[in-house]
Design a protein around this nucleic acid. Structure first.
Lengths: 210, 210
DNA sequence: TTAGTATACGGAGGTAGCCTCCGTTTAGCA
DNA sequence: TGCTAAACGGAGGCTACCTCCGTATACTAA
């Protein structure tokens, strides 16, 4: 939740972002920025892409002017919410990898990924636009997601809990469409994910191609 | 281009649509409807999703009121453009299948599909919304597209020009993402399409799985 | 051919959402 | 404690979607 991790930052290059270079943000500005991203996530989840900027600023308890000071346009806000989600997913991967046994960590991470995907789903259309405007956003996010999967999957492979002929990118490629595709409802996604998990286990490896 | 084909109609159920049931549209209304769809396609192609309803009605040479009489909201217009495209693609499949030799017909149809996909690409976001509101639109369109591919592919298979272990749905599944995915530029799409075509030829069949 | 009517046309204007501007407030510092 | 750069807030501009209704016109029946 906090932004203090420092390493592996996925952040926009707005001047008011804290961190390297400029003087740090004023305390109220930093607080409001966090309130705004959190509010945006809530309102987007509740109302989907129809959520208005006014509604989000109201939810955050600040004026629209403040919203636009932090996020010059709608896409910047969508982007910030997305980046926060990806960042949190990465932090989750690190946490489950240290706190849980290898296989339960995989299950826990799948769970977290599904939650992440739910937000992404409601913002798909706008994310498309954001990706088109800033191609590196997509690639950086994809990279961090792959690293997250790698972290959890590789550890489970080393422990002999996951088959050896797959890597994080493969699993992500398999899981992403299931979670993101609009024509797959949550229950179906849950079933498919369980099936993927079963296929992932080391003792499931039987079919070998080439 | 004309709407007289009768069979295989993919049309919305607005009361002013010509055909079954009600009395036929007045001549001016029918003419304006066609002008509007054609104008919408032009403007969408030129300006993408940013195209305004006002701009479209101006391009068609009618008032906005007329536009909204025919298409109560933006999504209905997007839908009409899409349906027209799918319909025309089906007609193209029929035409090339009667006018050209089996293999050239496949090539010609690929070409037409690429053009269709270009429009679809610019409207992707809005089509998503339309599909969510009317799930049967997607399935009907997909069905007609599959039939189009089947028509051309099956004929080429019978003539021994295309390998036997694929069908129209397979080819569509292969071709669609190449044409629709935003991160694939036109040149790359052209190359990939040529590769797919090469792999489709009967004498290319060598790799057999299971 | 003509008169009558159902139908369609057109564009001014209502509504709402994104964003800007600038006067007011406040955090951080000496 | 006073000063100033930074941040706040919300009225209002702009534009896009859509509605409404007076005007025009295609069709029909005599």
């Amino acid at each position: 939740m906090s932004t203090q991790t420092g390493s592996s930052e996925v952040r926009s290059e707005h001047p008011e972002v804290d961190g390297a270079g400029e003087r740090p943000m004023r305390a109220d500005a930093r607080r409001n920025r966090e309130l705004l991203v959190a509010a945006a996530r809530n309102v987007f989840t509740a109302q989907g892409a129809a959520a208005s900027m006014e509604a989000i600023s109201k939810e955050a308890g600040v004026g629209v002017g403040t919203l636009y000071r932090h996020f010059p346009n709608r896409l910047d806000l969508v982007e910030a919410v997305y980046q926060t989600d990806v960042q949190e997913l990465w932090e989750t991967a690190q946490r489950v990898a240290t706190e849980l046994e290898p296989w339960p960590a995989v299950e826990a991470f799948f769970d977290a990924f599904m939650r992440y995907a739910r937000t992404k789903k409601t913002l798909l259309d706008e994310l498309h636009q954001a990706f088109e405007k800033k191609p590196d956003l997509r690639s950086r996010a994809r990279g961090l997601l792959e690293s997250s999967f790698d972290l959890v999957i590789d550890r489970a492979k080393d422990a002999g809990a996951v088959r050896n002929d797959v890597d994080g990118a493969d699993v992500m490629q398999l899981v992403s469409p299931v979670c993101t595709n609009a024509s797959v409802d949550p229950e179906q996604a849950g079933r498919l994910l369980r099936m993927i998990l079963d296929g992932l286990r080391a003792d499931a490896a039987r079919t070998v191609i080439a």
